[in-house]
């Protein structure tokens, strides 16, 4: 099984942990727009791996669960070592992102010579309505927290949809040291510190019938960011 090069620019990196209920539909949607896809099965306990093998998608499998940050780290390392593609796109396995918006972000990056385009739920008022109230407030608080403690001036602190240029990944992002959900702060911080041009891009998140990250997990992320190495 080798990667075809229909889309010559980007590799979609999907980190999946116990996503048997969503992964098939997510991949079907993504395949309509992108041909280069790598799924990182992060030690799933359910039949995610069997499904991935059945779907004949390129897969890297962790023998134990190491966290989403670790999975993205693996995906980005694969992107650098085993492909010549120009962009990597991080994409959530739970189907919350829209592949067409990923494509729009990629085109936006190309057109404007950007090294990173980061999805944001807060740039379009229409998209804001779809975010549950508690989640919206938590994300806003997280943005303020990152602004104060890390000087990261982004509207959406933890959006998983990102378009990342090879140069940025190679010179600034890899290795990702935070294996847990705190990787989002690390990636944002590294992008801001790199001084390479980047932009935010309005995207919406599909929350209906999806197993989203618990809002209370923000406590874990905050404490981890305070205690761990930066």
């Amino acid at each position: 099984m080798t990667m075809s090069c229909v889309n010559e620019k980007a590799l979609i990196i999907i980190a999946a942990y116990n996503e048997s209920s969503n992964i098939e539909s997510t991949l079907q949607e993504v395949k309509d727009y992108f041909s280069n896809i790598i799924v990182i099965n992060d030690g799933s306990d359910d039949n995610t791996l069997e499904l991935l093998n059945k779907l004949r998608v390129d897969t890297i499998s962790h023998c134990i669960n190491i966290g989403q940050g670790g999975s993205l780290g693996t995906g980005l390392a694969f992107f650098l070592k085993h492909t010549n593609l120009e962009y990597a796109i991080t994409f959530d396995a739970d189907g919350q992102h829209r592949p067409n918006q990923a494509m729009e972000m990629l085109n936006f990056a190309n057109k404007n010579n950007l090294y990173a385009v980061l999805g944001s739920r807060f740039l379009n008022k229409e998209y804001l309505k779809s975010i549950p109230f508690t989640k919206r407030q938590t994300l806003r608080a997280a943005s303020i927290y990152e602004k104060i403690f890390y000087s990261i001036n982004l509207s959406d602190a933890h959006n998983g949809l990102r378009v990342l240029h090879r140069k940025l990944v190679k010179e600034h992002l890899v290795p990702i040291r935070n294996f847990d959900m705190n990787h989002a702060t690390e990636i944002s911080k590294k992008i801001v510190d790199s001084t390479l041009p980047f932009e935010e891009f309005p995207v919406d998140i599909i929350y209906q019938n999806k197993d989203s990250q618990s809002t209370i997990n923000a406590v874990n992320i905050t404490i981890a960011s305070l205690l761990k190495h930066r």
Partner: peptide, 23 residues
């Protein structure tokens, strides 16, 4: 350290299984 090891092993395995040639 364990997680870094897991990453390393998984990357080695994908090369062997899929036959993808490093550039």
């Amino acid at each position: 350290r364990i997680k870094s090891l897991v990453q390393h092993i998984s990357l080695t395995r994908v090369t062997e299984r899929n036959g993808l040639t490093p550039k």
